[in-house]
Write a protein that binds this DNA or RNA. Structure first.
Length: 508
RNA sequence: CGGGGAGUGGCGCAGCCUGGUAGCGCAUCUGCUUUGGGAGCAGAGGGUCGCAGGUUCGAAUCCUGUCUCCCCGACCA
């Protein structure tokens, strides 16, 4: 019987387990402000890694970073009807700019200081960036225009969950303007592919990229694409979105250009984003009953050295040995970056530190005690295979030089192994033989995955009916995978000839 | 917004029904003994019980009001 580091298992209560991982791995905590969290150093360190790698990919695509205001005038939203319809229910509004005492020891908004026009705390920035684009785009020579910002946004969600849906969250939002549909659509799909590759290669999180059905589109978009990841409980997580916005936003913000022939045309715009939700995805993709398993590429520390200090004269020798090990490891590259090493020489007990790093999911933990120093060894624990078959902690005692020589390859192996494990789970849980959704999703299986069915892509009332039918089973359509096999049968819902395949499942 | 739960040392909780000025575990500090699967023993410090009223000789406990957070649901880029 293995003694695990967490008190709740995934099998027993997945939701409680998720919250326990966040607490035990020191990723984040409740802030006392409704739906908002404090992201702690380890959690924020993961976000910084996501930012670093994603930012490089964004810049590689010729997109430039900018920063736009947190506050957006209400009138900006009113210009695009679908957009405001989609967000109206969840917008935080600033109405006053000053407080006064109410005479009872409390502060209240000063009625004299009411804003003439309310300001919205941005839920997304299409409108304010569109206003800038209308100034910046004059000629066909100004296109394409591609900007991105790293920012916080606020959406007043009814129900929040740490990382997955918080009232305030951190993200990047890319916004581009193009001369025509083809160029804008190419950009939309480029961003989608960037996200797919990022999720797979960096987060080790396999995803399915596809187009969202009409009812799941971003408010105001002509087409919305997503990457969908499967969590260990079989639910889907929308981990990134990319939208082709057509000319609607360009019309609302008056983004026009003069073409080669002297005529004026509306731009075609796109927007795309990923957020701190990705961290929730990493937790539910790679976490186990001992906490998080952090993929090496986003681990703030890839290798943590834990000296077994005992407050005696041996400590100096142990620390010297650890420092030389740290220096050797830091000189290495893994994934074409310097290896990130932490020598945890703090005052806590060695065992406490070890289990702390296990729960945080540091990919490799290296323990160094007096016996290792004497023998020139290190004791290595891989987070992706913590236990021997016997249930004992799997600590490998190897020569220090051998460990250093193989460290980069070990990190690559862990990264690859985590991906393979998650990919196998995704593949095994997408079912293409489902004939009865109620039976499949209503059975005793605790963690049902997704069903892929053929459909005729109906619209309007027929689509609404399907959505209602799925809703009764707590199901939604995730996306129509871009790389699915061509349709060759009839629609699961209407019986008409099918045109494509669509994924169905429960979602976060 | 509907349903449920919770606000008591840093954290997690008990006490409340049957009022008598607060207790436990973890953490912290000190000492000694330990040390490669989360140490043991002894001792110490730290809270006036979300907030505001009320009842009472006396309120964490009873009453009224109020605020906040969490969970489930509805909703949702």
């Amino acid at each position: 019987m293995i003694k695990h580091a967490l008190s709740v298992t995934r099998q027993a209560d997945f939701a409680a387990w998720y919250q326990d991982v966040i607490a035990e791995a020191d990723l984040a905590e409740e802030s006392g402000v409704r739906g908002c969290m404090v992201i702690k150093p380890w959690g924020y360190g993961i976000w910084e890694r996501i930012q670093t790698v994603m930012d490089a990919a964004i810049k590689d695509a010729g997109v430039q970073n900018c920063y736009f205001p947190l506050f957006i005038p209400l009138s900006f939203f009113e210009k695009e009807a679908d957009h405001v319809d989609g967000f109206a229910k969840e917008m935080a509004v600033v109405t006053h700019h000053r407080l006064i005492g109410d005479g009872k020891g409390k502060l209240i908004p000063d009625p004299e200081a009411k804003l003439e026009e309310p300001l919205i705390v941005r839920p997304t920035s299409e409108t304010v960036i569109g206003a800038a684009m209308s100034r910046w785009v004059q000629s066909w020579r100004d296109l394409p225009l591609k900007v991105n910002q790293w920012a916080n946004v606020v959406r007043w969600e009814m129900r929040t969950r740490m990382f997955l849906r918080t009232s305030e969250f951190l993200w990047q939002e890319g916004h581009t303007a193009h001369a025509d549909r083809d160029d804008a659509m190419a950009e939309t799909l480029r961003a989608l592919e960037m996200y797919r590759a990022f999720a797979e290669d960096v987060l080790a999180m396999p995803v399915i990229a596809g187009e969202k059905p009409e009812n799941e589109r971003f408010p105001g978009a002509v087409a919305t694409y997503s990457i969908e990841a499967m969590m260990q409980d079989g639910k889907a997580l929308q981990a990134g979105t990319s939208h082709y916005l057509g000319t609607g936003f360009a019309e609302a913000a008056n983004i026009r250009y003069q073409d080669r022939d002297g005529g004026h045309s509306l731009c075609h715009t796109t927007s795309w984003g990923v957020s701190t939700r990705m961290i929730g995805g990493v937790i539910m993709t790679h976490g186990d009953d001992d906490g998080l398993r952090c993929p090496p590429r986003i681990a703030p520390h890839q290798i943590v050295i834990v000296p077994m200090l005992r407050d005696n004269e041996e400590d100096t020798a142990i620390l010297d040995y650890c420092r030389s090990l740290e220096a050797e490891l830091k000189a290495l590259d893994a994934f074409r970056e310097p290896v990130r090493v932490l020598l945890d020489a703090g005052a806590a007990k060695a065992q406490t530190k070890r289990w702390g790093w296990v729960k945080k999911g540091a990919p490799v933990i290296v323990e160094v005690g007096p016996r290792d120093v004497a023998g020139g060894n290190v004791a290595v624990i891989r987070r992706d295979r913590l236990y021997q078959d016997s249930g004992k902690l799997d600590t490998a005692f190897v020569a220090k030089g051998d460990f250093v020589a193989g460290a980069a390859a070990m990190l690559a192996d862990i990264q690859q192994g985590l991906h393979a494990e998650a990919k196998a789970r995704l593949d095994a849980n997408v079912r293409r033989d489902v004939t009865d959704l109620a039976a499949h999703f209503g059975g005793d299986d605790k963690f049902v995955g997704w069903a892929e069915v053929q459909w005729s892509r109906p619209t309007g009332a027929v689509l609404d009916g399907i959505v209602e039918q799925l809703k009764a089973l707590k199901l939604t359509m995730r996306n129509t995978p871009l790389d699915a096999a061509p349709a060759d049968g009839t629609c699961f819902f209407t019986g008409e000839p099918a045109v494509e395949r669509v994924l169905i499942g429960r979602t976060y």
